[in-house]
Write a protein that binds this DNA or RNA. Structure first.
Lengths: 347, 347
DNA sequence: TTTTAGCACTTAACTTAATGGAGTGCTAAC
DNA sequence: GTTAGCACTCCATTAAGTTAAGTGCTAAAA
């Protein structure tokens, strides 16, 4: 366990700040000017040498200034940084952007990714509150004429998922009614996960009593169901990547971009953060493509409706203090907004 | 009007081909080796000087080889190029990818953009058959419980658009019924454009007879309606841009990328191509961001269901012959697939 | 009149060399 | 423990030189 003297701590802090703001390695001479104590550059150099021995800062070459190492950022984040109180203007932006009317949870969550990316100029991810406890609360089949039927699935959280299908023969509402009744009787109230499980085994047999050819319907139902039960990350500010990437090789840019595009990868990258704000720096992220970036993740808690995730991807040299403050504020505001929203569906 | 001798034509063709394949300016010595006639490099140089006088080829600097100018590509495309017959493997890919089951026109059209981008390694755009003649053929309001209602709109083309709304008080199907009946009576069968127009004037008054507070409903109806009536380009292979862009400046990349992301811009860029395949090269495209690229556009014709658009964006140095052949094949296959699809909805 | 060989010339791209600036580590004195 | 001084290192930038590919032009050949 590393312990730094007060002065070393101040120096590390200044190096992180300078490098984060200016982007250039920081030398002893420039440090001496802005540090509160009055010592010579030689003294600073001595201290820097010690910080380097500890592995907290590194040189880019033998005679360069220093930049923070991953370990240095880590120490900074864990021991030095104090979360900045969120800027009141930023808070207004958040509140205003979340203040509007929304028709779906997913709209709110998707919009959140956009707001956050706008405020940070980085790339952001959001995941809606987890669906583990989602239960099937309604199922409709609406005949639309012309060989089309729309299947609509509603959960106890008020989520609605729908899909339109083309069927060989037109059906009337009456013909569909037994199926809907079967679902109402047997499946309503069950967790989506359980329904999904049953779909493999019991349901096909049971449905055979109601329908001659249940396969088509099973496809439909399964398709809407898995849509409703799948977890999708929303990504905000994908383009912002261009601002903070260190890569100039288009090839690497492309693979990075694909990573963000295929939202199923994101789950493994982001993982399941704990309750408080987590910062992963450089190679602490379990994905080689991201080893030069930093990832800040946090959950937000919507009481009995479970927890969602917000995350932020940026350069390792980012203003952590401001970002953590911002994430904290967003966490709270989003949770509040969703609680409001869910209030409709609670008794 | 420019006329070239046989030999000049061959030289231009070879320059276009070489440059397209190799990416380097083409010199007289390399040309002399691959041209069918046996002349010296000096002769080729003389001819090249003439082609340069005509503005068909240019030097990148005073003593470099030549590359085709915009005008040169233009001449090549107009007078020299013969569309390559589509590769049978490519055709299979197209047919197979379009062969599956689709639930919506938009799925087919979106998928088309992806197929085409995969085959070409460029960026592609598709637009569904135009909606001008789309008529409103059905409207449903499905109460989902928990303050939610889903509005569903169906057109005579079988397009389905839907949106879920949260409403202050729960309504039963019975309460919604007069509204739906009003629409059935007054608006079914009308072109969407007309309905959209009426929404501004007559409908609000008429609805007042049926509902105390028609505003909420008007919002809902208007929202679904404009969703159904809006034209959306689908974009395929946005990432492919990284392969063919000449830009290394991230800033420019970003604006280019935004252009493709905001699909409303695309309409003005792509315009309304004629019936046959159109090639626009470099500054012939009415957008400065694209002045270093080429755009191939074509309509596809689905009889009375109107025409859609397919388009392809790539470098000016692209294998036009192959691309045009490919576009032609795709045009036919997509039209066929959609005719099949629409057959369901025709009597 | 067209084609060709020959040659002087141009330019980009690459390599090498020179220079200046920012920063470091070390030593010896404070 | 701190500081001044200094030799040293490395990057970045500029300058100069070299090579390879290609051109235009001229004068002779076909």
């Amino acid at each position: 366990m590393i312990t730094l003297t007060e002065r070393q701590s101040l120096i590390l802090k200044a190096i992180v700040r300078d490098y984060t703001e200016g982007g250039n390695p920081v030398g002893s001479k420039s440090l001496v000017q802005e540090l509160p104590m009055k010592v010579s550059s030689a003294t600073i150099r001595n201290e820097m040498a010690r910080l380097e021995d500890l592995g907290l800062i590194v040189k880019t070459h033998l005679s360069s200034g220093r930049i923070p190492s991953i370990k240095g950022y880590r120490y900074y984040v864990d021991h030095i940084l104090k979360p900045e109180k969120v800027d009141s203007k930023d808070l207004k932006v958040i509140q205003h952007s979340l203040g509007g009317e929304f028709h779906k949870i997913d709209e709110i969550v998707a919009q959140s990714a956009d707001i956050l990316s706008q405020l940070t100029s980085y790339t952001t991810f959001t995941l809606r509150p987890e669906l583990k406890d989602s239960r099937l609360s309604g199922f409709r089949l609406v005949p639309l004429g012309n060989h089309q039927v729309m299947a609509i699935l509603v959960t106890n959280n008020g989520d609605v998922e729908n899909q339109t299908f083309t069927i060989p023969n037109d059906l009337t509402g009456d013909e569909l009614e037994p199926v809907v009744r079967f679902i109402d009787d047997q499946l309503i109230g069950l967790p989506l996960q359980d329904v999904l499980a049953k779909l493999q085994h019991e349901i096909p047999f049971q449905l055979a009593h109601y329908l001659q050819d249940p396969d088509g319907f099973l496809d439909i139902f399964g398709s809407v169901l898995s849509k409703a039960a799948s977890e999708r990350f929303y990504v905000g500010g994908k383009l912002n990547m261009f601002n903070y990437t260190t890569k100039s090789d288009p090839k690497e840019m492309q693979s990075l971009y694909s990573l963000l595009d295929q939202t199923d990868n994101l789950a493994s990258v982001i993982g399941s953060p704990g309750q408080h704000i987590q910062v992963r720096i450089g190679n602490e992220i379990t994905n080689d493509l991201l080893k030069d970036y930093s990832l800040i993740t946090a959950t937000y808690d919507v009481d009995q409706h479970g927890q969602g995730i917000i995350a932020l991807l940026g350069p390792t040299a980012m203003p952590y203090s401001r970002m953590i403050g911002l994430m904290g504020a967003f966490q709270r505001e989003l949770a509040r907004k969703l609680l409001d929203y869910y209030r409709y569906f609670d008794e």
